[in-house]
């Protein structure tokens, strides 16, 4: 069967769209994380048992299975652990300008504790695993307590 068989009505079909909308509660730890983003800060959370600084912050240490301790303010810089250059968008449509995206481990958190974000102000051939980067923030007025309050990470020294 071809796509045109559906488009031109040669086979019987029914169509529909889920009309549900969602509102996810951010929870204790990510709620605080988002609030701190609005202030231009990154926070992690310490596990008092293993001593790891967990990032992104969470309300429990998944290894020790104990309640996490205090929030810790981290730097807004880190290291590119891995990256990709994407020529497709979220619906697999071709992009004119590629998106640079990576996993960035954050300075002050425990080793390998990172999150996914965009990379910017960098050329493809300058990107490498191990590259030191820092956050480029939206202006204070534009920040809303969202992961996108950081526009992207750029190489340090620029």
């Amino acid at each position: 069967m071809k796509a045109s068989d559906i488009e031109e009505g040669r086979v019987a079909t029914a169509q529909g769209r889920p009309e549900a909308k969602y509102a996810w509660s951010a929870g204790e730890s990510i709620g605080r994380f988002l609030a701190e983003l609005k202030e231009g800060r990154l926070v992690g959370r310490k596990c008092d048992k293993c001593g790891r600084i967990l990032f992104p912050p969470r309300s429990f240490c998944e290894e020790c299975f104990v309640r996490a301790g205090d929030f810790v303010t981290l730097k807004d810089s880190g290291t590119v652990e891995t990256y990709s250059i994407s020529y497709i968008d979220t619906d697999a449509r071709r992009l004119e300008e590629p998106i640079y995206v990576g996993v960035i481990s954050i300075d002050g958190a425990s080793e390998k504790m990172g999150f996914m974000h965009y990379l910017g102000e960098v050329k493809a051939d300058e990107l490498s695993i191990g590259l030191k980067v820092k956050a480029v923030w939206k202006s204070k007025a534009d920040r809303e307590g969202a992961i996108t309050d950081i526009r992207y990470f750029k190489p340090t020294g620029r």
Binding site: T13, A14, K21, Y22
Partner: peptide, 19 residues
């Protein structure tokens, strides 16, 4: 920290079911 935060989203997919 007591502030309740929510994030809103939608299910953008639509479906064509063959009979």
């Amino acid at each position: 920290a007591d502030e309740v935060r929510r994030w809103r989203g939608d299910m953008e997919a639509y479906y064509i079911y063959t009979a």
